[in-house]
C-alpha cells in the first residue's frame, strides 16, 4: 500500500525514466531527520553500501537485511552541538564525516569503525567558522573557513584507520568560498563557487589559485555541484536554490555552464527549470508561495531537489528536463533528496526519519 501511494508521477512526454521504491527505513527515535547519505562499509571481507542517517544529536549507520529491510548497526551520540550535515568521503570504506554547528558549521568530526580494537569511534577533524566542506577522493576533505582577517582553504587527509595526516593549504581567493566540486577526470583540479558569484579553480598538488571566472549576477547564489573538463573547456553544474517556477525561463534551478579557463569567458550549455504546473506551498491567508527549490544533489547527469511544495523533482541535466516528480507522501513532505554512492539510487527523506530508497 505504501509503495503504491509513493509511486512517483511521471510528467507527460518525457523519457520513461522513473523512480521505483526499493526499500524503506525509519528511525524510531522520534528526532527530526537532518541529513541522509550512503557509505561503503567493509565487514567480514565484503564491501556493501550502508545508509547513514543524521538527526540533531546523533548519527546512525544502517545495514541491509533480508527482504529489503534495514537494521541499525550503530548510533554515534554527538553531544550538545547539533549535526547539520553528513559529509561523505568518496570511494572510502568505514569512514564518514559530519558537520556540526548552529546556523553555520563550527566543527567537522570523523565517524569511523576501528578494526584495531573492534569499536566505533569519533574524532575531531577541524573547528572554526567553516563556510563550506566537501569530501574528496583518496580519503581527503576540503574546507573553507574564515577568521576576522583571512580565509583559509585547507585539505585534510586521513589514513585508512582514520588518523589525520598533514594538512595542505590552498591559496584563498578574496571572496568567501561557499561550495566545492572536484573536476572529474583531472585528479589535481578543484573548483569552488564564491559569495560574489565567481568560479575559482585550484591546482590541488601545488595549492595555486589558477583562475577566477565570474558567473554573472543574473544568477545569484550559484552553488557548484559537479565539474568536468572536456575539449579544453571546463563544464560546471551550478544550482540556484532561489529559482522560481514563475521565472522558469530566466531563472533555472540547475545550469550546465562551459567555461574557457584560458579566457574566463563562458556560455550556458543546458538549463533545467522547475517543473511547470507544480504549484507552490499554500500558506495561511490563502497566499501561495511559488515553487522554488530548497536543497538538491547532483550525481553524473542527474539532479534531484526538494521543492517548497514538499515534492522531490528529478532532472536529466543533459536533456535539461524534469524526468520524475515524487509528490509528498501520505506521512508528509519530503525534506531530503540525496543520490546514493552507487549509480541510480535516490534517497528521499522525511522529517520524521523515514528514508525511502528509489531506483532511478
Amino acid at each position: 500500500n505504501v509503495a503504491e501511494q509513493l509511486t512517483p508521477v511521471l510528467l507527460d512526454g518525457l523519457r520513461e525514466e522513473s523512480l521505483q521504491l526499493v526499500s524503506k527505513l525509519k528511525d524510531s527515535s522520534g528526532s527530526c531527520a537532518v541529513d541522509v547519505s550512503t557509505v561503503w562499509w567493509e565487514a567480514a571481507g565484503s564491501r556493501e553500501l550502508r545508509v547513514v542517517t543524521a538527526c540533531e544529536s546523533s548519527v546512525s549507520l544502517w545495514k541491509p537485511l533480508a527482504s529489503d529491510r534495514w537494521g541499525k548497526v550503530y548510533t554515534w551520540q554527538l553531544g550538545e552541538i547539533p549535526v547539520i550535515q553528513i559529509v561523505p568521503l568518496l570511494d572510502t570504506c568505514n569512514l564518514v564525516c559530519i558537520a556540526l554547528g548552529d546556523l553555520e558549521i563550527g566543527e567537522i568530526r570523523l565517524l569511523l569503525y576501528s578494526s584495531e580494537n573492534d569499536s566505533f569511534k569519533q574524532s575531531p577533524v577541524k573547528t572554526g567558522n567553516i563556510k563550506a566542506v566537501l569530501g574528496l577522493k583518496d580519503r581527503r576533505l576540503v574546507s573553507s573557513s574564515r577568521t576576522v582577517q583571512e580565509q583559509q582553504v585547507e585539505i585534510v587527509s586521513f589514513s585508512e584507520t582514520g588518523r589525520s595526516k598533514d594538512g595542505q593549504t590552498l591559496m584563498p581567493p578574496e571572496e568567501t568560498v561557499l561550495a566545492f566540486a572536484e573536476v572529474e577526470g583531472m585528479s589535481d583540479a578543484l573548483v569552488g563557487t564564491t559569495a560574489v558569484n565567481s568560479i575559482v579553480v585550484w591546482n590541488l598538488k601545488t595549492g595555486q589559485l589558477l583562475k577566477k571566472m565570474h558567473v554573472g549576477y543574473s544568477y545569484p547564489a550559484s552553488i557548484c555541484h559537479r565539474a568536468y573538463s572536456d575539449s579544453g573547456l571546463l563544464f560546471v553544474v551550478l544550482s540556484h536554490p532561489h529559482a522560481k517556477e514563475s521565472e522558469s525561463c530566466g531563472n533555472p534551478a540547475f545550469r550546465v555552464i562551459a567555461f574557457n579557463p584560458k579566457t574566463a569567458r563562458s556560455t550556458g550549455v543546458m538549463f533545467s527549470s522547475l517543473p511547470p504546473g507544480h504549484a507552490g506551498r499554500q500558506v495561511p491567508g490563502g497566499l501561495c508561495v511559488p515553487a522554488s527549490y530548497l536543497e538538491g544533489d547532483v550525481k553524473d547527469a542527474s539532479a534531484a531537489a526538494v521543492l517548497t511544495s514538499g515534492a522531490i523533482a528529478v532532472w536529466d541535466l543533459l536533456l535539461g528536463q524534469c524526468t520524475a516528480l515524487l509528490p509528498p507522501g501520505p506521512a508528509g513532505s519530503w525534506v531530503l533528496a540525496r543520490w546514493a554512492a552507487t549509480s541510480a539510487c535516490l534517497l528521499a527523506g522525511q522529517r520524521d526519519g523515514t528514508v525511502c530508497l528509489y531506483r532511478y
Binding site: N203, L210, N260, K262
Partner: peptide
C-alpha cells in the same frame, strides 16, 4: 560553443595556467 564566443581554447589549459599562476 565556438572559439569566437569563448576565445582561444587550449586542451592543456590546466598545465598552462599552473605554469603562469603565482605559487
Amino acid at each position: 560553443c565556438s572559439e569566437s564566443d569563448l576565445g582561444p581554447i587550449s586542451l592543456n589549459w590546466f598545465e598552462e595556467l599552473s605554469a603562469e599562476a603565482p605559487s
